[in-house]
Design a protein around this nucleic acid. Structure first.
Lengths: 144, 144
DNA sequence: GTTCCTGCAAAAGCTTTGCAGAAGA
DNA sequence: TCTTCTGCAAAGCTTTTGCAGGAAC
């Protein structure tokens, strides 16, 4: 899914965008990349705070905002009440199981056909979210 | 887009779902249906409060939640920091222009191909959001 | 030395909850 | 009468802002 990236490479990619590669920013980015669970800011903060006791939530929010603006992370708007983050930049869908709550990455296998109204639109980003029952929860009665 | 609906029809459709057709709930539903601008709860409240001075935001939130649960409205998760509502239940995409900020409804012209991982998933809802520059803002220099 | 960054505290904004009174069945 | 609903006030949460100290260049 996400190619592994060294601290040094992460730092240089941040610098290319004019972002100072602070340990906090690198930690946030690497956490989101290494944990494809579409974490919230809160979750990222909690996970990193044990190794970085001085880390503040403000810094997590600041870092996320910059990483999204720089195109290194995407936001995932699949929940009505919280924002999630995704380090997987390849085109893919999100599927949220309404039973177990897990959010799955689904490889994209179609493209929007740009006809009619869309012909004069310049599309820069597409996000497709799906809700339903995942294969693990969608087990017919009696078959397990 | 949305077929016109009388108060009486709205009331009976609410009752079918066991929801008491209070004037507030009908007003919220009709406002969202009649104003395909994907309004936020705040906007709905402000718009209705002039005609219904006693209306409270709590009631708007309660009504929206029930109308979404009953399948009469959908949430639109195209903004990172606010939830919007949509009374158009036909399959369509949303396109947000990053320049003028407007959100357009785009008729759906494709279907997700359910292959691979998705074969055992039960999809109940799909939402596709796009961001970019709309046709009005996407005017080449010198042509206007 | 100047700019940028972090982190604390406080503020802001959106949404939910508790509850009392009103409306409807 | 009993249940449901409304609306006020307060609380809860997430996110942003102000600012002082510190780090990087």
């Amino acid at each position: 899914m996400c190619r592994k990236m060294s601290h040094i490479e992460a730092a240089s990619r941040l610098m290319e965008k004019g972002i100072r590669p602070s340990p906090q920013r690198i930690a946030v980015w690497e956490y989101v990349r290494a944990n494809p669970i579409h974490p919230t800011a809160e979750r990222i903060y909690t996970a990193l705070a044990s190794d970085m006791p001085s880390l503040s939530k403000t810094t997590v929010y600041n870092s996320l905002k910059q990483l999204v603006a720089a195109g290194f992370l995407n936001t995932v708007n699949i929940e009505d009440d919280e924002l999630r983050y995704d380090g997987n930049l390849e085109e893919h869908y999100h599927f949220k199981c309404l039973q177990c709550g897990e959010i799955f990455d689904i490889p994209a296998e179609h493209h929007i056909v740009m006809t009619g109204k869309l012909q004069d639109f310049k599309i820069q980003r597409i996000q497709t979210n799906m809700w339903g029952i995942c294969c693990a929860c969608n087990v017919p009665y009696g078959s397990e």
